[in-house]
């Protein structure tokens, strides 16, 4: 006799459970955690380099770097004097909560104010995987084109802040900033939007101030 068994279980329930454990741990240690998302090369690491150099003496920051291969990004972070651990996903297109939980032993969380997780460069898959972060920061760079917001809506919908990077290149591009802001707001009406040049440092301070405020009163 064939029987039907109702499961009604989220496919990512395994990930979600571990993410909640991570979140509890971060909370108990008083660490604000960021999940930084963008497509490859949008400028996540460049932003972190500038940020780390500017807040070095104010807050204690550590970074988890997620990449398919190499420790290049962790080396760039370490060169800024911050503690960095590289996760190589060996082909996987995203970090998941378990990968993050497995490297947490490398940090002294109690000493940290902020833990930044730079996800694998990808606007699609990482959006599905909660890592236990407090805030999701999504970066788009002007060279990628304005249509990326409507083409990859999920990641923008779930963002706690959106950063438009490489505004120094605007004079050479047909990127309509007003339209960009409009498209983001359609998906996520209240999200703060920052316009920056991670390379030149323009606008980075506004984002940093916003973040520091979150650290002090999350």
């Amino acid at each position: 006799m064939t029987e039907r068994v109702y499961v009604k279980k989220h496919v990512l329930h395994g990930n979600q459970a571990i993410a909640e454990e991570n979140r509890e741990l971060f909370k108990s240690k008083g660490v604000l955690t960021l999940n930084l998302l963008s497509s490859p090369g949008a400028g996540k690491t460049t932003l972190l380099e500038g940020f780390l150099n500017s807040i070095k003496n104010e807050i204690n920051v550590a970074v988890i770097e997620g990449d398919v291969a190499t420790a290049l990004d962790a080396e760039r972070i370490a060169a800024c004097g911050a503690h960095a651990v590289q996760i190589n996903t060996h082909g996987s297109c995203h970090l998941d909560a378990k990968m993050v939980s497995q490297v947490l032993d490398y940090f002294n969380l109690a000493d940290l104010d902020l833990l930044v997780i730079e996800n694998v460069g990808n606007l699609v898959c990482p959006a599905e995987f909660d890592l236990g972060e407090d805030l999701r920061i999504v970066l788009l760079s002007t060279t990628e084109g304005i249509d990326k917001v409507v083409k990859y809506p999920v990641v923008f919908q779930k963002a706690d802040a959106v950063i438009l990077n490489k505004i120094d290149l605007l004079p050479y591009l047909s990127f309509n900033v007003e339209q960009f802001i409009h498209d983001v707001r359609e998906l996520n009406p209240k999200v703060p939007i920052f316009q920056i040049s991670a390379r030149d440092g323009e606008g980075v301070k506004e984002w940093t101030d916003w973040l520091i405020e979150k650290i002090h009163k999350p």
């Binding site: 039907r4 109702y6 279980k9 599905e128």
Partner: peptide, 12 residues
Amino acid sequence: GNEFYIDYFEGE
């Protein structure tokens, strides 16, 4: 919407 879940399976 956003859901993604196993509804049921059938077997014997």
